[in-house]
């Protein structure tokens, strides 16, 4: 199979996945909740602080994503297994990698779309004061990488169960753990030998760099490897067909 055909199949699967977001009310509820909660929490503090900065918003995002990413990914595999459509999907002439990539990119596209709608926040702030665009662009980029990592992890967890609720809760716990493990207050209590490793593994510590507007290739490579690791594990789970 040549590369173009390979990508075409991913694209067809991707389209189908994306369609199923918007065919159900989930997408609209998700976007609504995301925008309301994000705007509310941000503007609540914004006028008190009185600074034309969106730094606060980007430090909120990881916490909002923590709940919303598993909500996106929970059904991606669990529902296919529960309804049996996985049997249809995996007997099509498609590779396991194609299916996993299509599911991942559809989730990422959906997250990107929601994120795009929140662009009203930096615009409002720029209108009210003098906004430095560097951290804004960095923040959005970082949010996309962090969101992608959450989604890859959540997708992997969804492949382990046929129960969406379990996929959501475990996904939330896993994302929370991965995010918090590199945070300062966790490191303070950790054994000194482990601390640098934990700081490196944690999703959060890398996010802070990017959100400050510092785009370091080290952080980007870190996020890409994190995403790849969980997509790879996901393919391994699907290959094994270990459910009955």
């Amino acid at each position: 199979m040549n590369k173009l055909q390979y990508l075409k199949i991913i694209y067809i699967l991707f389209k189908k996945e994306l369609m199923s977001y918007f065919n159900s009310p989930i997408a609209y509820i998700f976007i609504g909740v995301f925008l309301i909660v994000g705007n509310w929490l941000f503007f609540n503090a914004f006028f008190l602080i009185g600074q034309a900065s969106v730094r606060n918003y980007f430090s909120l995002l990881p916490w909002i994503f923590l709940f919303l990413s598993p909500a996106i990914t929970m059904r991606l595999w669990a529902e296919e297994k529960k309804s049996g459509t996985i049997e249809f999907l995996l007997t099509l002439p498609v590779t396991d990698w194609q299916v996993v990539l299509a599911k991942f990119f559809s989730a990422l596209a959906f997250l990107f779309f929601s994120l795009l709608l929140s662009i009203s926040i930096p615009f409002s702030v720029a209108w009210l004061g003098n906004l430095d665009m560097g951290p804004v662009i960095g923040g959005y980029l970082g949010a996309l990488f962090l969101g992608g990592s959450y989604l890859a992890l959540g997708l992997f967890i969804s492949s382990l169960t046929k129960n969406q609720i379990i996929a959501f809760i475990l996904g939330l716990v896993a994302c929370f753990t991965a995010f918090i493990i590199g945070a300062d207050f966790v490191l303070a209590g950790a054994p000194a030998a482990l601390a640098p490793l934990m700081k490196f593994i944690g999703l959060g510590s890398h996010f802070n760099n990017i959100a400050r507007g510092v785009i370091d290739t080290k952080d980007i490579i870190y996020y890409l490897s994190f995403i790849f690791l969980f997509l790879w594990l996901n393919v391994r789970v699907i290959e094994k067909r270990s459910w009955k």
């Binding site: 065919n23 049996g84 459509t85 049997e87 249809f88 007997t91």
Partner: peptide, 17 residues
């Protein structure tokens, strides 16, 4: 797989489509 058409026993379909 390309040569085969398959209808599983449970008739799994994407309900929301």
């Amino acid at each position: 797989r390309r040569k085969i058409g398959y209808l599983p026993e449970t008739v799994p379909l994407y309900e929301d489509m």
